[in-house]
């Protein structure tokens, strides 16, 4: 199929960007979206032009590196997948596709469609861990049974890939879904109890410092999240936050 692409081009963080129009032809419907962009780039390089920069690595929906706001939605129109798993069969011949980077003050553009998501790392650094040193003497893994439901819920929260689509989707550029997923995972497990209160306070604090917006419960994050992280986690984080504020250590 043949497509018209409208793509955000921006040389670097300090330059001004703009949308540019490109045509691609002979795209197979079995291609992934990124393979379609590979074809575009191959063409651009052949013409001596600079290829479109976009982040990607695993190309199987797990590393969280790929991004792209495609036709007005992060990771494109399909649900529960990342951009690298999106296939061209979701588009029609002759269609115009708009491709933009994630837009948020806390995710500055590096080049074209690549953004800097290190704010997410800093939030995890503020408390998204259990403080346990490596040693051969931690207690046996089966010493504390964990109710299956808790283990499963913790796992579901832990599947967040840190892609940032939740922020990109949110009209407020809020990072609540991402932060709450980590807070929930550790709040649900016995191992996370000791630091439970400090964790939520510190992570929320860092989230605010990074300049993400406030959640207004629109729910767009969860719908667009490739891992379908649930809004339950945000509610749980709010509870954790309340308990930690009202009953501090």
């Amino acid at each position: 199929m043949n497509l018209t692409l409208k793509i955000w081009r921006q040389q670097d963080a300090n330059s001004k960007g703009a949308m540019h129009t490109y045509e691609v032809s002979d795209i197979s419907e079995h291609m992934s979206f990124l393979e379609m962009l590979d074809v575009l780039n191959e063409g651009l390089v052949a013409k001596g032009e600079s290829p479109v920069a976009f982040d990607h690595d695993c190309r199987e929906g797990i590393c969280g590196m790929c991004s792209l706001y495609i036709n007005g939605e992060p990771h494109g129109p399909d649900r529960a997948i990342t951009t690298c798993q999106l296939h061209m069969r979701k588009f029609k011949d002759g269609e115009t596709i708009h491709i933009e980077p994630w837009r948020a003050k806390a995710f500055p553009v590096i080049k074209d469609l690549t953004v800097d998501r290190s704010s997410f790392d800093r939030i995890i650094q503020a408390g998204g861990y259990v403080s346990v040193n490596t040693s051969g003497n931690t207690q046996d893994a089966n010493a504390i049974p964990i109710p299956k439901a808790d283990a499963d819920n913790a796992f579901d929260a832990a599947t967040c890939i840190g892609c940032g689509a939740c922020v990109a989707a949110c009209k407020n550029a809020s990072a609540m879904l991402f932060v709450s997923a980590k807070v929930s995972q550790l709040a649900l497990l016995p191992q996370g109890q000791v630091e439970r209160k400090d964790r939520v306070m510190n992570m929320v604090d860092q989230m605010d410092k990074e300049g993400f917006g406030n959640c207004t419960n629109t729910g767009a994050c969860s719908i667009e999240c490739p891992k379908e992280i649930s809004l339950d986690n945000i509610a749980r984080m709010n509870r954790e936050f309340l308990i930690a504020s009202v009953l501090p250590e």
């Binding site: 861990y129 259990v130 346990v132 490596t134 040693s135 051969g136 931690t138 207690q139 046996d140 893994a141 089966n142 049974p145 964990i146 109710p147 299956k148 283990a151 499963d152 913790a154 796992f155 832990a158 995972q185 550790l186 497990l189 191992q191 996370g192």
Partner: peptide
């Protein structure tokens, strides 16, 4: 020899391995 320690360490870090209904791994 060290393989068993790995599982202990990871569980202590909060890695949510699959569990059975009894709560064990």
């Amino acid at each position: 020899e060290v393989s068993a320690n790995i599982i202990d360490q990871c569980v202590a870090q909060g890695v949510p391995f699959a569990r059975e209904y009894g709560g064990l791994l």
